[in-house]
Nucleic acid binder design. Structure first.
Lengths: 243, 243
DNA sequence: CATAAGCGGAATATCGGGTTCCGCTTTCAC
DNA sequence: GTGAAAGCGGAACCCGATATTCCGCTTATG
């Protein structure tokens, strides 16, 4: 639906100010030497980032700049003052999320029991930040960045997985991709539960956790209790038809 | 993204020819008394229905009429000859799917072992037809129809669930909504695996089954084997970035 | 208090896609 | 065989949805 290329009059402006010769372009953020932002601008930037994270998580890349601006309580113009275009804003959000994930794996790797690390990771990963969902798929630039992020993360996750297998706490035919799909699935469920505007705040995270628990325990296991209550009839309708 | 109401010049044509006073409107299909279609037209109608089912399943409601026409090997005009608008086509597809699901529950209810019925239902339900995904959410008409369909189905599913609980083959804190979410989650995974145009045909259904097995067995169980092989690295990338 | 940085949000330029239209083709009844 | 009705394809049309720009007004800051 969203135009593959920017429709508005943007003759040829390169998406971001590429400085380094190789690797990745840096988004508009990190302007190393320019003078610091005015205090109010700084605040707005934070608001924008937070709003963008929320809105993108809820609606994917299709979320409009206006939506984000509204959520942040600023005008669109302000968004464009900080980020030359939508893509660079997305990039900034992705990098934020990446930083968080990385911190998480390392923390779990360092502090959790080997047998439980992978499970703890999954739980906290889901609770960490809303999914980036379909954010990535639109531009080669974003896809490339995302791939790189996954590459940096996967060794650590594989270590968690290996630890769990060595401890016999996880079935041995599970692979990295199963973990990824599982995480994705939980997030998809969360997304679905969190979309539209209604009974969100309650169901979303909780349904995600419930689903994850199901995935971990399995429908057939009976020695643990599913967390949270199931969807109410109204919530279910809501989920199923997402008006 | 898609306009909430039809944008083109469609003055006021009611979406479908309502005949009955209550219940549901019937879509454009079932024209009771008009003379039968020409042989070629009949064939095209079948093609259209099949194409629409596939395309909607892959891309949701956002799939364009042109996409569907192309897949069916006909022109857009032909679509509009049978269905006055997009909504009525969607309706037709939904009703098709519903008929299938109903047949399935009843068959399972009649023939499967009580302890296994719910699991067999889930497996076959997923294998039955591609998910209707986000099809439903756009118009009140569609939402209403969908709700009605769910209502008709849920008693039977609840019976399956009750049977399984009585037989002790399923944990007792599972509810109807958990089954629904589980099914949805598997379909979402399938959708994700089947989107874009590349490594589809193989991965899609298989990944769905693998995920379902995981949900049924649970990550911690070890006395069963996950079906199919895990995603290859390429497929995983593909899934994660969906270019 | 001057001034540059920031701000809001209406206006602009496109674009995608549902729906319509119409001249050409195919089927069917006689 | 033949003419009319039914069907067909797909270009054209129209509209809503944004990304992005522009510019006059505000507000920190020195």
């Amino acid at each position: 639906m969203a135009p593959r290329t920017a429709p508005g009059p943007r003759p040829d402006t390169p998406p971001a100010t590429r400085t380094g010769p190789s690797t990745l372009a840096e988004p508009t953020l990190a302007e190393p030497s320019s003078r610091p932002l005015r205090r109010d601008a700084e605040l707005n930037l934070e608001r924008i980032l937070a709003a963008a994270q929320d809105v993108f998580a809820e609606s994917g890349f299709d979320a409009s700049m206006e939506q984000i601006a509204n959520r942040a309580g600023v005008g669109v113009g302000t968004l464009y003052r900080r980020f030359p275009n939508k893509e660079s804003l997305v990039l900034a959000i992705m990098e934020m999320a990446n930083r968080h994930s990385e911190a998480l794996v390392h923390d779990v790797l360092a502090h959790a029991a080997p047998a439980e690390g992978i499970f703890e990771f999954m739980r906290r990963c889901v609770g960490l930040a809303p999914s980036l969902r379909a954010l990535v798929s639109r531009s080669p630039q974003l896809a490339e960045t995302h791939r790189t992020m996954v590459d940096k993360l996967s060794p650590s996750i594989n270590r968690l997985l290996a630890n769990a297998k060595a401890a016999g706490s996880i079935r041995s035919d599970v692979t990295f991709s199963d973990i990824a799909v599982t995480l994705m699935s939980v997030r998809l469920v969360e997304d679905r539960c969190g979309e539209h505007g209604a009974s969100d705040k309650l169901g979303r995270r909780q349904q995600g956790e419930r689903h994850l628990q199901l995935l971990v325990d399995g429908l057939r296991a009976k020695d643990s209790t599913l967390p949270h209550r199931p969807l109410t009839r109204a919530q279910l309708d809501d989920l199923l038809v997402r008006e």
